[in-house]
Design a protein around this nucleic acid. Structure first.
Lengths: 205, 205
DNA sequence: ACCTGAACACCGTTCAAGT
DNA sequence: ACCTGAACACCGTTCAAGT
């Protein structure tokens, strides 16, 4: 195994990304330090600059890969609308929150301001994740016999909802005395938004 | 005016807070540095430690004051439900987004993880802001002739929605190609959530 | 081509010392 | 009681130099 995988034998870039993800998981965004990532990869603090233009570039690459695995996860949860659009939507929302809670630091880094600005490719990966959400909304509306017109707008509403719940949970604003179950808040609100979009009455009971 | 107001004549604590707010406005959370705040207040880097236990404590005090002015602003926009609950709710949502967009750095600091953990008083100020939202939801439901039961849950939904739209706008995820009007997304979603909570049909057209 | 060594500016924090 | 001066560890970044 020491053929071409020694930390600084051709894979330093990815080694830095993985070290960075671990740092985010351990101590949040402020713990992501270029120097410490280099230390964990077994190189000096100057070495990363051969692969990244700076700290923000590393963060952007981490965000890009984060959006990829995030997109894959919610896509799997949606499972092409099986067994039915409403259950699949609930499963996707649950997967969304689960990702944010399991990979707190990574999620925060993905949605921090710096990431998408530093590298357009990170924005592209985010676009792809949003598109999965959009397809789910379209399928939901079709299953409800409603016109899929305006689905993009509804997808943004669902996204804002999921992101808001995720961020308030992460930042601790949902725990401090307010003892609300984040998943229940999200479920209820998504049901309301979707019902309104479908032009139906009360949310699915 | 040089009686007791010289920067380091009894008001250093508030001077540091104000310098910090300015730094947040100019360069975001990462620009909020204890050293630079001290420099602007005309004291050495060690001076702040007589008033704050560290950087996070300054951030928490800034967040606390931020939640106070934030709460005052959305309360004024709600204006006790005048001229009617629906318009007042829309005005409150608009004020919410306006605050987040005008005081981007401050808003991000208020909802960052560190702030509320470092000082429970910041959490208390956040509670007060949420309570205004809650009262608005209750009034909205009453005006719609619906039972106000479960209003707390609905208030959390509206909060998550507003926060999600605000954060996605701030982080640039709503601009990158997605050209969505944040206010329109929020308005539509809130209308949907409220209509569902009131047990009504389509959202207010 | 990729990495080291040394250096600089900057920040958070501590502590002894001043007034 | 409140602040300065000096110090330490740490980080981002640059650059000349090694292999």
């Amino acid at each position: 195994m020491h053929v071409k995988r020694g930390y600084h034998h051709g894979s330093l870039k990815q080694a830095l990304v993985e070290a960075g993800v671990a740092l985010l998981a351990e101590g949040g965004p402020s713990a992501l330090t270029l120097t410490e990532a280099a230390r964990r990869a077994g190189v000096t603090p100057a070495a990363p600059y051969r692969h990244f233009s700076g700290r923000d570039a590393l963060l952007a690459e981490i965000a890009r890969q984060g959006f990829e695995s995030f997109g894959a996860r919610i896509e799997a949860a949606w499972d092409e609308g099986r067994p039915d659009a409403q259950s699949a939507m609930r499963a996707m929302c649950a997967a969304y929150l689960a990702f944010a809670r399991e990979e707190t630091g990574l999620y925060a880094a993905m949605f921090g301001q710096a990431a998408t600005l530093a590298d357009p490719r990170a924005g592209g990966a985010a676009d792809h994740a949003l598109e999965i959400l959009w397809r789910a909304v379209v399928a939901w509306l079709q299953a409800a016999g409603a016109p899929a017109q305006g689905a993009r707008h509804v997808a943004l509403q669902v996204w804002a909802l999921a992101h808001g719940v995720a961020m308030l949970t992460i930042s601790g604003h949902f725990d401090a005395g307010r003892t609300a179950d984040p998943a229940a808040v999200l479920d209820g609100a998504v049901a309301g938004v979707m019902a309104a979009a479908a032009g139906k009455g009360r949310p699915v009971s």
